[in-house]
Structure formats: structure tokens, C-alpha cells
Nucleic acid binder design. Structure first.
Length: 698
DNA sequence: CAGCCTCGAGTTCT
DNA sequence: CTCGAGGCTG
């Protein structure tokens, strides 16, 4: 091969590497790709082909060489040139106030802060991932290590090289001779879920949370496995830094923050400097002033926590001036110039004391974990549903196990997984009882169904109680004052056997029950009396027919117009209703062919209960006709029901789940997964004002 | 027949 | 809110 040709191949290879590095940076660090994935792939394959033809030109810093090393048998240990410290924690505003006061006093004492002046801080996210240290020499990534005990960590260079947001080469001409970057490895929630789906398909280990997934991925002995894991990196600090003067001479050697001649003189400036070298730095960092600034940042991030693509467990405050940091120094292993302000944990471990079985309105037996009380997500959790038998098995939960409990974006606590390593010898597996724990009737579990049911029907006190509570509910007959406790008494005394019996109660009679004064008894009778003219749809829903919920009840009421018509409808007539198939039709048919249920209807009528037909929304040009909306989070002024009423009055439909067919998602405060889904499907998102505007109310 | 879209049912804590 | 399951659509 001729000299000039080799020369031009080398030039082309070099050009391709620089191009690919650039596009990597825009894609993974700036989050703003300049070219399509296909174009990127073309560059990569051209480079790979050239390198294959000219193996002598391959260097370890080529983008094709991210997966280089062969599987290792163990991780070597690495001594950090500069200690990797931990942070002290603040759990409430008082802790933060104490921190700010300590800092303010110390800096005033040192003459670095005028009297009355507030401290400048840099506030940033506290990522819930793994702390790592990256060492660059002359701009090239030479080593990556876990935090370990802060002094010594494990060498995970081969794995970290596969992470695309970690540059193998720093950008720019003026790279330091040595730079140790400190930061966090993590996985986004979306990537975590995708990975788990994949793992499940391959019948491999499913991870409990993004943090564990990130940790597990970095601890792979085979870097090829790590390469398939979608890890991200964010830089937030540094260890050793050696800059060079023009001409290549080393200018300074930095170990501790605040030494005289760092590349920048503030923490925020340092992070910008790191970003300038091509390292990913979160753009949710802010410069703030004084205690108020710190707490405002905490609040702001807390609100946005659910919509962040990755998990955080708090925020971190650092005194911004490096000179001030230096004055403040360190206590034990933690700097005095910084503190982590933690959010209430969203995940905790606790112990399953027992697994009880509850019986629902339809007879469904639900296992419920009784937990050792644990504070998670801002509340103390003592119970958590385990849904059904299969779920308990799938999660491998034994009574006595230590388990991970989560209270994620939503409200309802969930047992995520058991930790089998902590299982005591006397732990015992859970099994569904053979008979109903309330009435003793046999239980059955139909093939292809996940739930086990009590066959006792209304003979079962649990089912009687639950069906009456259901009928009194806000979306059914809306009888205020008929709570669970009172229903328990009424059913246990035998006075109330069905919803019809409610309408024969007298105030005098009621006053005899526990915790029922004369006044509240009279109020309840008034509430019951108001329920004598229910909308047909509400009455139908109140009856608790299997497979007939709020929506189906409304559809049936609208289609048939009267209770008699529905009671007498045959299967064929029922199937003509939209969204009613054989299962629902059969269920309605069976319910009303049951003499017992027809008796209840007769008794209701005798007690003066007569359904009224609801009025349909007026025609004309309704602004939301044909639109489907989904509500999530808490709106500033309207309750969920109020918003629903307004939307329905405008001809719109309100649905519970977001799909491509959703016209708008109306998001309020603390919106959860539905908002995320709306973003990922590209569905338009409104706030309350936006909704009002659509309704023509603004 | 598969895949999508909804609905129903059960649940926690203050 | 989430899961399971019913019903409809391509």
C-alpha cells in the first residue's frame, strides 16, 4: 500500500472518530442529536470497516472500542487519589436552617461575608444511583472506579467505557493533564422498565428498581453485558486536577476544593468547566441565595420529582465559592460546606408480620400483608395488598420475610419484592384458605382467573356488608353518614340484609346503635330519604351486578330507559347495547333471573324508591363532542368529579387511562405516570386553565 | 386472532 | 393507581 493512501485512510479514520464523538456528545450529553440514528450508524459502520481493514490503526479510544476487554474474573481494587467523601444529611427545614446558620456564622467570622449578607449556594439534584470516579489523563479516560469505602474502590473501567454518555476523550484543546471526575451512574425509569421487560422475556433476573439495575449492570464481570445496559452518567464534582500551561508544563496540582488556582473559583463555575470538557452535567442545578433560596429549590424539585426521567433521593446544597469551601473544611468524612437534603424515602424495607385474607363485595379473597409499621413516602404504612395468590408466589413472599415496600408517584403502598437472603428459619409460605375466612363457605378459583372467590354469596356477612357500603357510596346512591362501622352493626344485628332494608330504617331505631346520637340518626334518615329518587344509572350501579360498573350502568340506563325494561331484557336485547358482550349480558341476565334479586327490587319500590331518568346533555355545538380526556393529579380549583361533570356537560368523555386515542390529558399537581405516558405518546397536555379555555369558560 | 382500548374491582391513609 | 379481563377493530 502506498504511503499517501495509508495517510488518507488514517485521516478518514480520525475524522470519523471525531465526528462520532461529537454526535455522541450531542445525543447523550446535550440531549439534542444533530443527525438521525441511521446516519450515525452509517458513520459507525464505515469506521468499523476501515478499522477492520487496518487493524494497526485501532486505538483503545476509538468509539468502536467501547467494549474492549474480555470478561474479568474479579475487580481489581483502586486507591482514590483524593478521598471520595460522603455528605451529611438534612431531613427537614430545621436541619437546613442549622446548616445555613453554621455556614453563615463561619464565613462572617472569616470575613468572607458582610454582616447581613446571605450565602451564595449551588443547589443540585441528589441522584439515586452509584457514585463513581473517572480518571482522565491528557484527556483520555484511563480509569473508572466505584466509591467503595471512599479510600479504595473497585476498578470498573471496562464497564464504564461502554457507557455512551461518558466521553472516552475530553473535548477541546486545553485538556488538563489529570482530571478525576466524580459523578453518578444511573438508569432512567424508562430504560429500567424496558430492560426489565427484556430480562423477563429472556427469563433472566428482573431488577427491583433503577438503582439496583444500575448497580447490577456496573458489577458485571463481562463488559459486553454492561454494554447492553442503558446506563447514564452525570458529573457533580472532582478529585485530583492537574492543569498544564501552554507548552505542556504542569502548572498546578489540586487536591482539595478551594486551593488558590483552580480553573474556576466557584462550584458552579467548575461544573460549567466540566461541561465544557464534554462531561454531562445536569442542567437542573441552580445558583441560589440564603436559606430561602435553598428551601425554594427543594420545593421546586420536589414538585417536579415525579416527572424527572430518573430517580433522585433529595437535593444537595454546596457553598458556591471555592475559597469559602476551603475555609469551612471538613468534619470527619463529610465536608462542612455541603449537605444533602433528603426527600422522604419512597422505598423502605420492613417485615411481613402476617398475611391476612379479606373478602370483597364480589367475594374476592384478597391477601393483605400486615407490615411492621414503616415510614415511607411521608406516611406510615402498615398494610399493603398482595392482590392474589399468584402475585404472592411471583414475588416469593413468605410470612416473616423482610420485604421492600414502595410508595411511588401514587398513593397506594406496594410490596415490591422479598429479600430471600434475610428470610428467618421460621418463615412460612402463604397459601389461600380452602374456605371463606368470614362465612366458612367453600372457595373456588375458576380456571384462567387470578382471583379466588367465596361461594357464599349474600349469605356471607363480608359480602353483605361490602355490597351495602358500595350501594351507599358517592357514585351510587350517595347516602352520607352511612359509614363502614354502622353498616357492620346493622348487618351483624340482622336488621339490614339488603339495600332495600335501608329504606325502612327509622331514626328512633338507629339511635339505639353505638356511636349514633339522635341528631346523626335524623341526618342519616334525611340522607336515605334523598336517595329515594336516584338516577336510574346510579341505582343500577348500586345493585352491584358483576361487570356492571359506573360506565356500563350509564350505558344500560340510557339504552333501556327504565328498570323494568332492563329486568325483562333477554340476552339478545342486552347485546345490542354498545360495549356489552356475552359476559356482561349473561351477568345482567343472571342477576335479574335470581328471584332473590327481583324481591329486592320489589322491596325497594315498596319503600318508595323509584329511579328517575337522567337528562341527556343538550345537543347543539358542544365544544368537547367526540373528545376523550384523561384527568391526572390534583387540579387547583376543581375536584376530579367537578372537572368530570364539566367535561361531560360539554359532550366529552372522561377515561381512566391514556392511549393514542386520548384527545387531551388534564394534569394537575403531582401528576403521575399518566402524564409520563401522555408525553411518550405525544398526547396534548392541559392544565386547569387550558381545560377551562376549551370549555369556553375563560 | 392479536393487539389495543376501556372498564371494573380492590386498595391505603389522613 | 394498577391489574386483570371484556369487547372491539384491523
Amino acid at each position: 500500500m502506498k504511503q499517501s493512501e495509508t495517510q488518507s485512510v488514517a485521516q478518514r479514520i480520525d475524522f470519523l472518530r471525531r465526528e462520532i464523538d461529537k454526535h455522541n456528545h450531542h445525543y447523550y450529553v446535550e440531549d439534542a442529536p444533530l443527525i438521525s440514528d441511521a446516519e450515525y450508524d452509517r458513520l459507525m459502520s464505515e469506521l468499523a470497516a476501515l478499522e477492520e481493514a487496518h487493524p494497526d490503526l485501532i486505538t483503545p479510544y476509538s468509539p468502536t472500542q467501547r467494549v474492549g476487554a474480555a470478561p474479568a474474573s474479579a475487580f481489581a481494587s483502586v486507591r482514590h487519589a483524593v478521598l471520595m467523601r460522603s455528605l451529611s444529611n438534612a431531613f427537614d427545614p430545621e436541619d437546613v436552617a442549622a446548616f445555613d446558620k453554621r455556614v453563615t456564622d463561619a464565613l462572617r467570622g472569616a470575613g468572607l461575608l458582610p454582616a447581613g449578607g446571605a450565602v451564595e449556594y449551588m443547589a443540585e439534584l441528589k441522584f439515586d444511583g452509584l457514585a463513581v470516579s473517572l480518571r482522565y489523563e491528557n484527556g483520555l479516560l484511563v480509569q473508572a472506579a466505584t466509591r467503595g469505602d471512599g479510600q479504595t474502590g473497585e476498578d470498573i473501567t471496562a464497564n464504564v467505557r461502554t457507557v455512551r454518555s461518558v466521553p472516552l476523550r475530553l473535548r477541546g484543546d486545553d485538556v488538563p493533564e489529570v482530571l478525576e471526575v466524580r459523578g453518578e451512574m444511573l438508569m432512567t425509569r424508562q430504560d429500567f422498565e424496558r430492560l426489565n421487560e427484556q430480562q423477563q422475556k429472556r427469563r433472566e433476573k428482573v431488577f427491583v428498581n433503577p438503582r439496583n439495575a444500575a448497580a447490577g449492570s456496573l458489577r458485571q464481570l463481562d463488559p459486553r453485558v454492561t454494554a447492553g445496559r442503558p446506563l447514564r452518567f452525570f458529573a457533580y464534582g472532582w478529585g485530583e486536577i492537574r492543569l498544564r500551561r501552554k507548552g505542556g508544563q504542569v502548572d498546578l496540582f489540586q487536591q482539595e476544593a478551594g486551593d488558590a488556582a483552580m480553573p474556576r473559583d466557584t462550584h458552579s463555575g467548575m461544573l460549567e468547566w466540566l461541561a465544557g470538557l464534554g462531561l454531562p452535567v445536569s442542567d437542573l442545578r441552580r445558583s441560589v441565595r440564603g436559606l430561602d433560596g435553598l428551601l425554594a429549590y427543594y420545593e421546586d424539585i420536589g414538585k417536579r420529582r415525579a416527572e424527572l426521567p430518573f430517580e433522585i433521593d433529595g437535593v444537595v446544597y454546596k457553598v458556591d465559592s471555592l475559597a469559602a469551601q476551603n475555609v469551612l473544611g471538613y468534619v470527619a468524612r463529610a465536608p462542612r460546606y455541603a449537605i444533602a437534603h433528603k426527600f422522604p424515602a419512597q422505598e423502605e424495607t420492613t417485615v411481613v408480620l402476617d398475611i391476612d385474607v379479606q373478602v370483597g363485595r364480589t367475594g374476592a379473597l384478597t391477601p393483605v400483608a400486615r407490615l411492621k409499621p414503616v415510614f415511607v413516602g411521608g406516611v406510615t404504612v402498615t398494610n399493603a395488598t398482595l392482590h392474589n395468590e399468584d402475585e404472592v408466589r411471583r414475588k416469593g413472599i413468605y410470612i416473616g420475610d423482610t420485604v421492600i415496600v414502595r410508595r411511588a408517584g401514587d398513593v397506594i403502598p406496594e410490596v415490591v419484592a422479598a429479600i430471600p437472603e434475610l428470610r428467618p428459619d421460621d418463615a412460612r409460605p402463604f397459601s389461600m384458605p380452602q374456605s371463606c375466612p368470614v362465612c366458612g363457605s367453600a372457595v373456588e378459583r375458576l380456571e384462567d382467573e387470578a382471583v379466588t372467590r367465596c361461594t357464599g354469596g349474600l349469605f356471607c356477612a363480608a359480602q353483605r356488608k361490602q355490597s351495602i357500603t358500595h350501594a351507599a357510596g358517592r357514585k351510587a346512591l350517595d347516602i352520607e353518614g352511612l359509614g363502614e362501622k354502622l353498616v357492620d352493626q346493622l348487618v351483624e344485628s340482622g336488621r339490614v340484609k339488603s339495600i332495600a332494608d335501608l329504606f325502612t330504617l327509622t331514626a328512633l331505631e338507629l339511635a339505639a346503635y353505638e356511636r349514633m346520637g339522635r341528631k346523626s340518626a335524623e341526618n342519616l334518615i334525611k340522607a336515605i330519604d334523598q336517595a329515594r329518587k336516584p338516577e336510574l344509572a346510579r341505582l343500577l350501579f348500586a345493585m352491584g351486578i358483576r361487570h356492571v360498573g359506573e360506565t356500563t350502568a350509564r350505558d344500560l340506563a340510557q339504552h333501556f330507559g327504565s328498570l323494568d325494561a332492563i329486568m325483562d331484557a333477554d340476552e339478545e336485547a342486552l347485546l345490542a347495547v354498545r360495549d356489552v358482550g356475552p359476559v356482561v349480558a349473561g351477568s345482567v341476565r343472571r342477576f335479574f333471573s335470581e328471584p332473590h334479586n327481583r324481591e329486592i327490587v320489589a322491596a325497594l319500590r315498596k319503600a318508595g324508591v323509584e329511579p328517575v331518568q337522567e337528562s341527556l346533555p343538550a345537543g347543539g355545538n358542544l365544544p368537547l363532542a367526540g373528545k376523550t380526556l384523561v384527568l391526572t393529579g390534583t387540579l387547583p380549583n376543581w375536584t376530579r368529579d367537578e372537572a368530570t361533570r364539566h367535561i361531560m356537560a360539554a359532550g366529552g368523555k372522561v377515561s381512566g387511562s391514556v392511549s393514542r386515542k386520548t384527545s387531551y390529558v388534564v394534569a394537575g399537581e403531582e401528576a403521575g405516570s399518566k402524564l409520563e405516558k401522555a408525553h411518550s405518546l405525544g398526547v396534548a397536555v392541559l392544565d386547569e386553565d387550558g381545560l377551562k379555555a376549551l370549555l369556553g369558560m375563560k
